[in-house]
Design a protein around this nucleic acid. Structure first.
Lengths: 252, 252
DNA sequence: TCATTTATGATAGTAATACTATTACAAATG
DNA sequence: CATTTGTAATAGTATTACTATCATAAATGA
């Protein structure tokens, strides 16, 4: 199966849903917002321009004031939707995890081979998002993907992780990792670390992509800046780990 | 070899150097500071209390004003040492990478077996730092280790990575990964991704530790909150990957 | 249809942050 | 003894991250 095949799958799942008038509207955790941004024009604008601005300025350089200028509204209005910019980032990132989880579910559904499922998961994690691609919500997927790589870990790397965790802020991320680890267990029922391998896979997919683009000497992909190499690395990482019991036995 | 043996190695290398009146003073990159903090009492205080305060407040909550109160100096003085708080964090993190690199070098030196070297590296990465432990610089290692887990990635996850990279800010991290990947190649000369595996190992050591403590359902270590489990996971991850060529051949 | 919520806009204001600038003095150095 | 260097004290600025108030327009519901 080539990359093109998978791109076809991607576009297929996208357009299929569009043609069916389905909208990917995950039910977002209410703790993530003060007023539901999906329910008004202004709210949707905040999300849309929020994504582009955070990508453009970086999360540290991003402010509600600047966002209010772009969305042609006031700071006060944005504060009525989100408590602060950290919550807005948390919302955006959570949305992405929901989206990824859906993609994994949709594209592994009715696939019999666990091996194929795993390859599909890794494929989804290393999708090269085409520029201009948007979702039903009019959110630019390229910008979103860039935000995930650079800013997503800042959502949990805080002094208030525990409270945020209790507020279920990280549920979609946990769900995604839970789904992936089930697939791992399907492939290799005796594997000891399915959850850790899942979170490692997801984190590594993003960090290696970031390193490849920004600190290439931390990777082996310096020459050809291509996600295909990252994909191969991740596949080798995951499949060798899942084959471990046999390996360990043969080594002893 | 048990954990205790390795703790002995750790303490040994520490105290050995202390007894010899050696001080671990890495030559820090000059771009990291405006005035060398190691060269004055106030500078050393800034580093020492900087570490404790950043750990206490989190990097976002930490300000030079608060640091100036603790160090009993003024904001202006601190600004003469470091351009801003991000640079101070970069300095602290770079110092840690130097320290880690030294530990790896020291403890793998004269070890013949590459397998043993790798185990030592993983051991160092998962050291349980004892409270109260300080270095020659009087920096609290427990606080520092906590900072590394929660704040270190914020040093490179910025809009100005490329400029920082050109200023060699990340050299110690790259050196560490370079050293580790050499060991990987020693163990398995044909392995395709030694650098990516190194950065993945280092990143995963910290992220899994963070997840274990804060988002345990992303790991398989929820029950016993122990770094020993993380160590075992990392060993399985690395050794299975490095054994891959054989595995792949046997699978086809 | 009219009354009443509700959402937004406009405006103002505040405490804290992240700095910069200036002057001055004391200690170390050459 | 002159000069560099380090630190303190003080002041000031633009920006950030909010909060509060009040007016008005739009949506809703009886």
């Amino acid at each position: 199966m080539t990359i093109d095949d998978y791109n076809t799958i991607q576009n297929h799942s996208f357009y299929y849903l569009c043609r069916m008038q389905w909208q990917l509207h995950p039910k977002m955790n209410e703790k993530l917002y003060l007023r539901d941004p999906e329910q008004s024009d202004i709210g949707r604008k905040i999300l849309k321009h929020g994504v582009t601005l955070i990508r453009e300025l970086g999360f540290e350089g991003f402010t509600f004031k600047k966002l209010s200028e772009v969305t042609k509204t006031t700071e006060a209005t944005i504060y009525r939707y989100f408590e602060n910019k950290h919550r807005l980032l948390a919302y955006i990132v959570a949305w992405y995890w929901y989206w990824l989880d859906f993609q994994v579910m949709f594209n592994t559904h009715n696939v019999e081979s666990a091996e194929k499922k795993i390859k599909t998961v890794i494929d989804i994690l290393t999708w090269q998002i085409e520029s201009g691609q948007t979702t039903g919500n009019d959110i630019n997927m390229e910008d979103l993907h860039e935000i995930i790589k650079t800013e997503s870990s800042k959502v949990y790397l805080t002094k208030h992780v525990s409270e945020d965790n209790q507020a279920q802020i990280f549920k979609p991320y946990k769900d995604l990792c839970g789904r992936i680890s089930s697939i791992f267990l399907e492939y290799s029922p005796d594997y000891t670390y399915p959850r850790s391998l899942s979170s490692t896979l997801v984190e590594t997919a993003h960090s290696q992509d970031f390193f490849m683009l920004n600190l290439p000497s931390l990777t082996d992909f310096s020459e050809a800046k291509s996600l295909v190499k990252v994909k191969e690395f991740l596949e080798s990482l995951v499949f060798s780990s899942l084959a471990l019991p046999a390996v360990a036995a043969s080594k002893r």
